[in-house]
């Protein structure tokens, strides 16, 4: 039941944002749609979030969003600079980055944020959670990845433990 709740509340908020209308009738329809969809969803192995940990979860989530937003901006600018440079200064290749977590959700989220950060893109993930990442510039990425990975890991573990 609380899995259903955890799934349907965000869905309800998305519905409200998309319809942009808070009349009672619309609220009821939104609630019905949200609960209906979360009852239909396939069985997933998602961690439950305790009520007491909810503020902490939201705070870590918001900080994570800001980090991701910063990564997107830097990623867009640095890739644009590389593309416009007449010499095309790239040294592409695939490097292995351990995600440091066994959980599927944690690995998926790390892979997601790595793909958003400048010059990196996850090509494959193996069973041990090692992410094979394609980089525009292998040497730069190898230096940066360690720090960024530690920060993300601490935030993600605060969200899901």
């Amino acid at each position: 039941m609380s899995h259903t709740l955890q799934f349907s509340v965000p869905l309800f908020l998305v519905y409200l944002a998309l319809t942009g209308n808070v009349e009672p009738a619309n609220l009821v329809v939104g609630a019905l749609v949200a609960v209906g969809i979360s009852l239909l969803r396939p069985k997933m192995d998602l961690p439950l979030i305790h009520w007491r940990r909810l503020p902490q979860f939201l705070w870590a989530g918001i900080r994570y969003l800001f980090i991701v937003a910063g990564d997107v901006i830097r990623g867009g600018l640095s890739t644009a600079r590389i593309v416009l440079d007449p010499n095309l200064p790239i040294n592409p290749g695939i490097i292995a980055i351990p995600s440091g977590t066994q959980s599927e959700l944690g690995t998926a989220l790390s892979a997601h944020s790595i793909s958003l950060s400048p010059g990196e893109m996850v090509v494959a993930i193996d069973d041990e959670g090692v992410m094979y990442t394609h980089c525009l510039n292998v040497d730069d990425s190898e230096r940066m990845v360690a720090d960024a990975q530690n920060l993300r890991k601490s935030l993600l573990s605060r969200m899901f433990e």
Partner: peptide, 8 residues
């Protein structure tokens, strides 16, 4: 793949 390094 273009590039020398390929850990995969």
């Amino acid at each position: 793949l273009v590039g020398k390094r390929d850990d995969l």
